Simulated scan of single mutants.
Amino acid sequence: MTETLLVTGASGQLGRGVINHLLNTLKIPASRIIATTRTPANLADLAAWGVLVRAADFNDPQSLGKAFAGADRALVISTNELEIQGKRREQQLAAVTAAKQAGVGHLLYTSMPNPEPGSPVVFAPDHYDTEQAIKASGIPYTIFRNGWYNENLFMALPQVLASGQWYTSAGDGAISYGTRDDFAAAIAAGLASDSSESATYTLTGPSAYTAAEVAALVTEVTNKPIQVIQLSDEALTEGMMSAGLPEPFAKVLVSFDAAARAGDLGIVTDTVEKLSGRKSVPLKQFLETNKTALAG
């Protein structure tokens, strides 16, 4: 296979992980890889290895058209624009249009689990509408519905361990945590595949855990007890805002708890292992490996 593979958001953690797996795990020649980013200087090392680095700004459709030129298979990593409602959707729909105009043969996209209408997650409509636009484009596609990263726990666990209290509104809802690198390996394999079939995959870790179960694992690893305190969504939002979080961001975080409570984030699949050909990292192993980082 000699197809050219494109990765957007290549300066980000997931994008960089995908490219690393293309180069080092799958041994794709650097000359067949296009890495796009708003800041090409940040990818100088990739350029030195022979990867074609291009500027692409999701707020500039013209730059997207130039970036996608010549790509046979293109991975659009969802943007991190959350401050302006609907902006992420606008950016991603522009990328779909650019891919179609550039003649991309297969379009891949990173979505989220269960983004259909009715999802409690604040930005779920951005993903759902992007998925629909991809399907309407007529381009063969692969949609990766990425689960919750283990690494996201670092946003809260240092404070939880410091106080000994974990405030949540997730109830008994479980989340199928998985490592970002495991997801990147699976996505890289999908991007490098020669399959032209359209497919939607949900990427998860090997097990799902409630907040209480995660707390028990963290306690086992750190020897620090954690009390899980269940709140309403409203009380949790108010508490986060009192701690200094902007209201829009607090509502996004609480919406994840609401989605977990609704059962939207607890699905477990073996898709990561099937695509990547390797065993997924269990949550306890991840916590043990990153024990120092848990303390903040």
Rank of each mutant, 00 (worst) to 15 (best):
T4E: 03
A102G: 00
T110L: 07
L157K: 00
K284Q: 10
I19A: 02
E238Q: 14
T39N: 15
K279Q: 13
W49M: 13
P225G: 05
T39D: 15
D172W: 11
V76F: 12
V218T: 03
T179G: 14
A170Q: 08
S195V: 07
V76S: 11
G103C: 14
P206I: 09
K66W: 00
L43N: 00
Q85V: 12
A162F: 00
T269E: 14
A215G: 00
A156D: 13
D57V: 06
V218Q: 07
Y149G: 02
A55R: 12
T8Y: 01
E90V: 11
I267M: 06
S242E: 14
D126F: 04
A56Q: 14
Q159R: 13
I229L: 07
D57M: 03
T292K: 12
T204K: 12
L26F: 11
G244M: 08
R88Q: 15
A293S: 11
N59V: 02
A124P: 02
D194I: 01
T2H: 14
E197S: 12
T269M: 14
I28R: 15
A124Y: 04
A67F: 03
A162W: 06
Y177N: 04
G171P: 12
T130C: 09
G15M: 05
D181C: 07
D257I: 06
G15P: 07
T200H: 11
E238L: 08
I175K: 05
L23I: 09
A124I: 03
L64S: 03
L82F: 15
N42K: 15
E131C: 06
T210Q: 03
A186G: 06
T204W: 13
V268L: 10
G138Q: 04
L75R: 12
A102S: 14
G173S: 08
L93C: 05
L14A: 09
I34A: 01
G9M: 04
L283H: 04
E273N: 07
L275I: 06
L265W: 05
T110I: 12
E116T: 04
A41W: 01
S111K: 10
A136M: 00
A55W: 05
A250M: 08
K66H: 12
T179F: 12
Q165T: 15
S176F: 02
S78P: 03
G86S: 13
V122Y: 09
Y177G: 10
I33P: 08
S193Y: 09
P61W: 14
G12L: 09
L191N: 09
L294E: 06
S193G: 10
A30D: 02
Q159S: 12
K251D: 01
T202C: 13
L191S: 12
E83F: 14
I139H: 01
A74E: 03
T292N: 07
T289H: 02
A74V: 11
G277D: 04
F68K: 06
N59M: 08
G17P: 04
